[in-house]
Each structure stands twice: as C-alpha cells, then as structure tokens.
Design a protein around this nucleic acid. Structure first.
Lengths: 244, 244
DNA sequence: CTCTTCCGTGACTTGAGGTCACTGTTATGG
DNA sequence: CCATAACAGTGACCTCAAGTCACGGAAGAG
C-alpha cells in the first residue's frame, strides 16, 4: 500500500455508483414505469432505450446511470410487473372457503377481466417467460423461485391442509406442475384473443371458455387432487364437485 | 411488419435474387449447420453472424444472400434442430407394444442419453422456446402446429385407440397438456444438470430421477389416462402398473 | 469465345447500446 | 451566506454488429 490513507479514489473499479439521494428512488420508479410501457408495446428487442429517455424528457445516459444495461432495466420492469399480480390466496374469503380448486377456478375465470383492465404487466411477464435471452431468463427464474410472487407454495400448502391435494407427492412436484400448466393454460386462454397465433392449439374460445376451464380443472383435480376413496371419511363438503 | 421468413420470398422487383444454382442448396445447408453450432454455444444474441461467416471461410454478405436476416437464419436452424428429434412413435416396437405410457417412459428415460450424444439441437430448441423475440416465437409456434414435429397428435391417437386415454376430452386438449408438461418436465430434468438454475424447482436429480419419472407418469395417467373402472374389461396387461 | 446470369465479396451504412469527461445542483460545514 | 464536496444529469462520442450494394469474377448457353 503505502498510499495516502485519505485518498478515497483508489477503487480501480470505476463501477457506476448506485443512486443514493432521496429523490432518486422516485426517478428510478418513473423510468421503470415508462420502460414497462415501451417494452410491453414494442417487445424487448424493438424497444429503444433512447425512446424511453425521450419520453421521459431526460438524456439516454441518465437511464444507464440507474440501470447497468437494457437487460438490467428489463429485469427491474419484469419484477415490478410480476409483483403487481395478485397471489392465489388473495382471492375473496368466500371463494377460499370453497376450497383449493374453486380458488383456481376463480382466478382462471377472472384473469381475462384483470387483463383487460391492465394488459401491460401481463405482456411483460410474457416477454420475460418467452421473449428474452436465456441468460436473462436464468435470472428471472431465480427471482421466481426466491420470491414466489404468485404465492404458489402457500397455495399448495393451503390445498394440502384442506386435504384436497395428494399427500404422496412432494410439494415441489405439485408446485411445479401447477406453475407449468396454469401458466400455459392462461397464456393459451389469453393469447387466443390478444395475440392470435402466439400459442399453440386451444382453438376457438368464444363461449367454450368456461367449458375449457372446467375441463382443465377436472384434469388438474385428477392429477394432483386427493383421490376420492369410495368408502372412507371423505370430506367432500368443501369441494366443488362436478363431473361430466 | 417484417416477418421472419428465412427464404427471401418472391422479390417484388429487382430485390436480391434467391439462389437457384444447383450447388446452392448444399451451401445453404452448410451455413445452417455452422450457425447451429454458434447459436447453441453462444445463445441467440451473443452469436455473431460475422463469426459464422469466418468459420465457413466466406464473406458475411454471403450469409445474408441465403437468409434474409439473423432471425430468419435462426428460424431455419430451429426447424432443422427440431426435425432431427425422434417422434414419439419412433420408439422400438416392443416398447410400443407395451402401450402409451410406456412409450412416454421410454423417451423420458432416454432423452438424457440422446442429449449427451448430441446436445446442440436440444440447446437450439431451448433457445427457440424461451430465448428469442416474441415475433420469432410466433413463427415458431406456427411451425410447430403445422409440422407437429414430435408426432404428438399421432401419439395421442395411438393412445386413444388403445383405450389408454380418456375419450371425454378433445384431442386438442390432451395434445396441449402433453406438449406443455412433457416439454417442461424434460427441460427441468435436463437443465438440472446442463443448465443449473435455468429452470425452476425440481431440486436434485441424482438417482431420484427414475422416481421422478415414475411420479410424473403416474400423474399424467391420472390426468389424461382412461379411468380404471373397477369391474369391467380392464385391459391392464399392457400397462406398466406400479404405484407407491 | 462471348454474352448473360448468377454468386460472392468486402467496404460501407445504419443504428442501437453503452461510456465518460464535464457541468449544473444540492446538501453540508464553517 | 459562502465554500466545498458529492452527486445527478448531460450529450457528444465510442463500439460494434446487423444488414446493403456496386462491383468483379465464375459458370452456363449459344
């Protein structure tokens, strides 16, 4: 060493400093908000950081002062979008009282409505799931595991406590299956009208939508639901039982 | 607008002419082959068209004579990769004789092995499914629907004929479910060792892999399998029936 | 051998992400 | 109330990769 101890400028890392001043957080937030619009409207690649800066009335460089890169900015946008979604157990109490699969039905049926109100975060999550680089996707998945933003784990526990889910599978497996299929089913439902051709199959959705949801719920119930034993203490009173 | 279209389609005027000379197809093929390597190794964004040209010993411009854009080139690469995979019903005859779910088990168990032999096409399909732009993904999905490269539809028909799949669901629904879950399950199995952290959950895979496959098959069988009616001409002799 | 058609080329253009030395701006301290 | 330091913001600038094009050479056809 032997340098002058008071020299604080020694860091060879010319790492850009993260904002620290009070008003800074608000600015970051504004950037994220505008960026979300742009990403949602244009897609990841086509969205231009320069345009966002222009829309904000600031210099492009300023954006890179707050976010290391376009990827980093998108990641922040993605996190905000996903956090804005409701969790499974945010369903109304009377729905929750009717049990696991009714909660699921509730969300499947109302997603479309929520989407019409505010399609931007949905589009962002779609981009994050299917429309970015794999390196970013890795980051995103880590986030999803850590935060569990839809509260899937808690929801599965809820189902297990109510004895509506099988106990002979690991929780992990159930959570995975639920995540995968619900996500895809929802995407198929939604993109059928918003993004024709983006997802496969699931032809027309006019008024067959409810029927599809029913079919899907039945399927899930068979797959991960507690089996109905013909002669035992079947506590079915809380289950929304209908079957073709 | 700006579709993906790899083949420069019918120039409206004196646009660049598409290749017609005999040796041209072979050259196209060589480009796709090298491009596949580069995309697989670097990812979509990081792969450089210039590098591919250099590796081929040709000029960068030449690549753009055969493929309209990087996107178009990737699309061609993707198609080749996916077409190189076996179809469900390509399983050995003795496996097929054991029925639908045994065919599934066969592929799930052997995918890892196939992957070790040749990981490049697998990586490409991963990129196509999760790591490119949404516009490209739309093109990809159209292709998957039209070509059905894994023969899922035929496979489901096979299962229906053998009365191993429920008849109270549309074929489309079964195909969708199968596509979704198998794809994700496979990705989770494979990336667990090839791409740690890319996919969610499905913790350690050491020797529990077989158990996981079994669990997954059981689950699928409950979900889409023909229900086992206690007292009927249950033709179970061909089913791999084990249960915890 | 010549003419036409095609093919490959590489220098060039375009344009987006990202950087940096500098300048205003705001908070602290005497 | 000014001096000083730390920071926020700037925009000209850089880098680098996709995509273009006028040209020269090669491969048929006659």
């Amino acid at each position: 060493m032997g340098g002058i101890a008071s020299n604080p400028v020694s860091p060879p890392r010319h790492q850009r400093h993260l904002p620290q001043r009070p008003g800074s957080e608000a600015k970051r937030s504004r950037i994220v908000e505008i960026a979300m619009q742009h990403f949602a409207e244009q897609g990841y690649q086509a969205a231009r950081v320069g345009d966002m800066a222009a829309a904000l009335g600031i210099a492009k460089g300023s954006i890179f002062q707050h976010f290391r890169s376009k990827d980093g900015l998108f990641f922040e946008v993605y996190k905000r979008a996903v956090r804005s979604f409701p969790k499974y157990l945010d369903a109304p109490a009377e729905v929750k009282n009717r049990g696991f699969f009714e909660v699921l039905r509730y969300w499947l049926a109302s997603t479309e409505h929520l989407l019409h109100e505010d399609w931007i975060p949905y589009r962002i999550s779609l981009l994050g799931n299917y429309g970015t680089d794999l390196t970013l996707k890795r980051e995103i998945n880590r986030f999803l595991i850590i935060e569990d933003p839809y509260g899937t784990v808690a929801f599965v526990r809820f189902g297990l406590e109510r004895r509506q889910l099988r106990k002979d599978m690991d929780v992990e497996m159930i959570v995975s299956i639920l995540d995968w299929t619900v996500e895809r089913f929802q995407d198929a439902l939604l993109t059928a009208e918003f993004d024709p051709g983006l997802f496969r199959r699931q032809g027309e959705m006019p008024e067959k939508k409810e029927a599809r949801i029913q079919q899907f719920l039945d399927l899930l119930q068979r797959a991960i639901g507690e089996p109905v034993v013909s002669s035992r203490n079947a506590r079915l009173e809380t289950r929304g039982d209908r079957r073709g």
